[in-house]
């Protein structure tokens, strides 16, 4: 009985995804469930799927990272600038961009762990700072004209079917799942999210773990930025604006509690697919961008609302 209800609870999210696909399949008149469109969805979700992994870790310890949209923008601008304006080799440019993104994560960690600024404010500040930096570098103009081989990270597809960006995303999910379930870091994330004080008193060096988590969040955001740049072929200074919102929605919808300590990687994958197919389905059905915003906002509120209500029920 008990096991059953737990099973239902843990897998309800996949049911939601199924229902959603069915609705769109019918409502779109057959345009939604086509091989072409499903590949399209996998391409569209790949960058925020990748970013969602780092965000999952951050929300697991009951923090938040608002800077990832800016990191994605900055990586776009810097990577493109290095290749176009500085003539740097593609792979070197990618490496530098990823190191920079990880470094920004580390800066966030210093503010949160060492200085003690609440994560919401610390990462909001860095969001603003690095968005500004991206504008300063690009002057607000798109940077394009780099080698078409950069398309390897997103446009290319194996056998013209499986897009490389989707493979990168799957690999990242596998890595995220491995970190969470097989390494002691994963245990530490759950412990800190459950009770930071008790975790420290159990011998976990909480601050060090936070350095790791924010760095990972920065790294995955950076990788998402590379994939996005590869897909668009041009770096825009507004490309990442508000992306943290989509990513947070995916993670919370996937069952990661905003109170910390609860959540699974598979849930987050489902969350990413739900938001991805929702966005895609609405575009197919010609729903205006503003209506899409309304729908996504409601989805976030409902997802968090369910989390809060289950927390309340547990408490009483």
């Amino acid at each position: 009985m008990n096991l059953n209800s737990n099973f239902v609870k843990q897998n309800a999210i996949w049911g939601v995804l199924l229902v959603e696909i069915l609705i769109f399949a019918v409502a779109s008149g057959g345009n939604f469930v086509t091989g072409h469109n499903l590949i399209n969805i996998s391409r569209q979700v790949s960058y925020y799927g990748i970013a969602a992994i780092g965000m999952t870790f951050v929300i697991l310890i009951a923090d938040i990272d608002l800077s990832i949209g800016s990191i994605i923008t900055l990586v776009n601008v810097v990577c493109a600038w290095l290749m176009v304006n500085a003539g740097v080799n593609m792979w070197v440019a990618v490496l530098i961009s990823l190191i920079m993104a990880t470094g920004i994560g580390l800066v966030n960690a210093v503010m949160v762990a060492a200085v003690g600024i609440p994560a919401l404010i610390a990462t909001f500040a860095s969001q603003t700072v690095f968005e500004g930096v991206a504008y300063l570098i690009s002057g607000g103009r798109p940077i394009s004209g780099f080698d078409s081989s950069f398309g390897i990270f997103a446009r290319w597809a194996i056998a013209d079917v499986v897009p490389i960006c989707a493979i990168i995303m799957v690999a990242c999910f596998a890595l995220g799942s491995f970190i969470l379930n097989k390494t002691y870091f994963g245990r530490y994330f759950y412990a800190i999210g459950g009770n930071e004080e008790a975790a420290e008193l159990s011998g976990i060096r909480v601050n060090r773990v936070k350095y790791l988590i924010y760095s990972l969040s920065g790294f995955f955001a950076g990788l998402a930025g590379i994939v996005l740049l590869s897909r668009s072929g041009s770096a825009q200074s507004t490309v990442g604006k508000g992306l943290e919102f989509d990513v947070i929605t995916c993670v919370v919808l996937g069952g990661v509690s905003v109170y910390g300590g609860v959540g699974t990687m598979s849930g987050v994958i489902a969350g990413v697919l739900i938001i991805g197919s929702l966005t895609n389905g609405m575009i197919l059905m010609d729903v205006s961008q503003y209506t899409q915003m309304v729908v996504k906002g409601l989805v976030l509120a409902i997802a968090v609302g369910i989390d809060c209500m289950s927390k309340k029920r547990q408490a009483s």
Binding site: R187, Y190, A191, G193, G194, N195, E197, A198, A199, L201, S202, G203, I204, G261, V262
Partner: peptide
């Protein structure tokens, strides 16, 4: 301060 309530006995002991 003592037990990590939201995780398993096994994980608590090995923490």
């Amino acid at each position: 301060h003592g037990a990590l309530l939201g995780i398993s006995i096994k994980n608590n002991i090995s923490m």
